[in-house]
């Protein structure tokens, strides 16, 4: 399982930056069957959280309606230098985390 975050390395105070995230995950819908006809259990990411310096910037409740290998792009107000922490959890309770740093000037 891997994930990545894309943010600019630097921003000016008060600037609105774009955050992009991509998480490798099958997002198994629970509606598919294997070659023997046995249903494949649902396993989707149910929650994605982005915190910046400990403060929630974006949270998402997700379902099987989000495409495999979830991709998200959203905005964030750059106020101080710090670290963006992305974390997620799926139906099987598996958690993942990824981090990215931002340096804010001005």
């Amino acid at each position: 399982m891997s994930a990545r975050i894309q943010i600019p390395a630097e921003a000016k105070r008060g600037e609105i930056i774009e955050v992009r995230i991509l998480i490798q995950h099958v997002m198994e819908t629970g509606y598919r069957f294997d070659d023997r006809g046995t249903p494949i259990a649902r396993n989707v990411i149910t929650s994605i959280l982005c915190n910046y310096n400990g403060r929630e910037v974006m949270r998402a409740d997700t379902s099987s309606g989000i495409a495999a290998n979830p991709y998200l792009q959203f905005c964030m107000l750059a106020e101080a230098s710090g670290e963006l922490v992305l974390s997620w959890v799926d139906d099987e309770g598996v958690r993942g985390t990824e981090r990215a740093s931002l340096s804010v000037s001005g």
Partner: peptide, 11 residues
Amino acid sequence: FANPGTLWVDR
């Protein structure tokens, strides 16, 4: 960034 195939390249 958005091309999911690049996740496998990273791996």
